[in-house]
Computed example of a mutant assay.
Amino acid sequence: MDMELLKRSADLRSLADIRLVTLEDGPGRGQRILVARNAAGVAFEVAVDRGFDISSLSFKGTNIGWHSPTQMAFPTHDPGSEDGWGFLRNFDGFLVTCGLDHYSKPSELDVSHYNHPHLKTRKMPLHGRIATEKGRLVSYGVDIETLEISCEGIVRQASVFGETLELQRKITLAIFGSELAIQDTVTNRGFRPTDHAVMYHTNFGYPFLDDTLTIGGLPDEISSEINSSPPRPGDEYGEKVDVVDNRLTPHQVPVLLRNLRCGIEIAMSYGQAALPKLAIWRAYQSGVFALGVEPRTDLRPANGALLQPSEGRSYGLTFKFSSV
C-alpha cells in the first residue's frame, strides 16, 4: 500500500474512479453503465446490460471509440429480426463482442449435436447474440492495494435445446497506467457439445479516426492499401473488409494506430494463437464513419470449435495509449 499516496488522496477519487450509473433518458434509458477514469487520462464506459462491452473510450479528452446512430438502444432489438440482420439496430460502441456461437452474416447452422428430435438446423443472426445479453455484475472498484481500476461481469447466452455459454470478463486499468486490459473466458455450461466462435469488433471513431490516421503492423500489402486511402466520409461509401489469417500471412503484434493530428498512438495486442484471424473493417459512409480492427476465431463447419461440456477458452486483448 502506498502510504504517501494515501496522505494526499484519502479515497483516490482525485486520481481514479469507477461508478455504476443507470441511464435515465434517451434510447438507452434503463441500462446500467460503469463509468471509469484514471490519472493518465484514460476514460471508458462498460455497458453492463449489453454484453459487458466497452461502449465508450477516450484518452486525454479525445474520443477514441465509435458512436453509431443507434445511440445504445435499450432494450436491445432481437438480433434474429429482419431476416437475421437485427444486429445493425443495436450496433454501437468501442468494443462489441460477436458470438458466442457465431459471427459474420446470417447463416443456417447444423445444430443436431444438441440432440433435439425436431430441431436440426438453426438460423444464426449477424454476429451472434452475446452483445445483446444482460450481464451479471461480479465486482467493480478501485483497489487501494494494487492501485488498479477493475470490473468483472458474467454474461450468459442460452437456449433450451441449444447452447449454454458463459462469458466471464475482467477489465483492468492501472491508476497511473495507460494500458487497458481485457481478459475473457468462455465456458460451455451445458451438457452437450456446443458451437463456439468469437470476434472482437473493436471500433474507432472520430476524431481519432480522420484522414491523418495510419495503421501499422499489418502485412505490407494491406497496410499500404489502407494507408493510401485516408479515412474520409463519403455518401456513397459502403464497407470494405480485409481479412488476415495469421497462420498463413503473419503480422506483427501490436497493431499500431496513430493519429498525429490528435497526437495519439494506440498499440493493440491480442493472443494470436487463440484468435488466429484479423479483419479490418472500413465503413466510411457518411453518418457511419467507422474503422474496425477485429481479432477472431475460426467458424464452424470449416475450422470452428465445438466446446465440450465444462470446456472453456480464454482470450486477452490490451490497448496501450501514448502521446506522439
Results as ranks from 00 to 15, higher is better:
193 P>Y: 01
153 G>D: 03
254 P>E: 02
226 I>E: 05
203 N>T: 13
198 V>I: 15
170 K>F: 01
178 S>Y: 00
254 P>R: 02
207 P>W: 02
262 C>I: 00
210 D>L: 07
228 S>D: 13
247 R>A: 04
290 A>M: 15
185 T>G: 00
163 E>Q: 14
151 C>N: 04
279 A>T: 03
164 T>G: 00
259 N>S: 03
239 E>Q: 10
172 T>C: 10
190 G>A: 03
293 V>A: 06
214 T>D: 01
291 L>S: 03
182 I>R: 02
194 T>H: 03
224 S>D: 12
174 A>D: 15
205 G>M: 08
291 L>T: 03
156 R>E: 14
287 G>L: 06
184 D>W: 09
267 A>M: 06
172 T>L: 05
215 I>R: 05
229 S>A: 14
193 P>A: 12
196 H>D: 00
156 R>D: 15
216 G>Q: 14
184 D>H: 08
294 E>K: 08
212 T>W: 09
202 T>S: 15
288 V>W: 12
289 F>N: 13
183 Q>M: 11
272 Q>T: 15
287 G>N: 06
244 V>Y: 03
255 V>H: 01
258 R>W: 00
185 T>R: 15
248 L>K: 15
280 I>F: 10
213 L>I: 10
241 V>A: 11
266 I>Y: 01
257 L>P: 04
246 N>Q: 12
209 L>G: 09
293 V>W: 03
289 F>V: 06
233 P>R: 09
188 N>C: 11
289 F>S: 09
198 V>K: 04
260 L>K: 14
192 R>F: 11
248 L>M: 10
281 W>Y: 12
274 A>F: 00
175 I>K: 06
227 N>R: 06
276 P>W: 02
161 F>H: 10
180 L>G: 11
185 T>P: 01
221 E>T: 13
261 R>T: 07
191 F>H: 14
171 I>G: 04
200 Y>S: 03
163 E>A: 11
256 L>R: 13
173 L>Q: 04
190 G>I: 05
243 V>P: 01
252 Q>L: 09
275 L>F: 06
239 E>S: 10
241 V>Q: 04
218 L>K: 08
188 N>I: 07
203 N>A: 11
231 P>K: 02
199 M>G: 13
169 R>A: 06
281 W>T: 07
179 E>Q: 14
219 P>T: 05
286 S>Q: 14
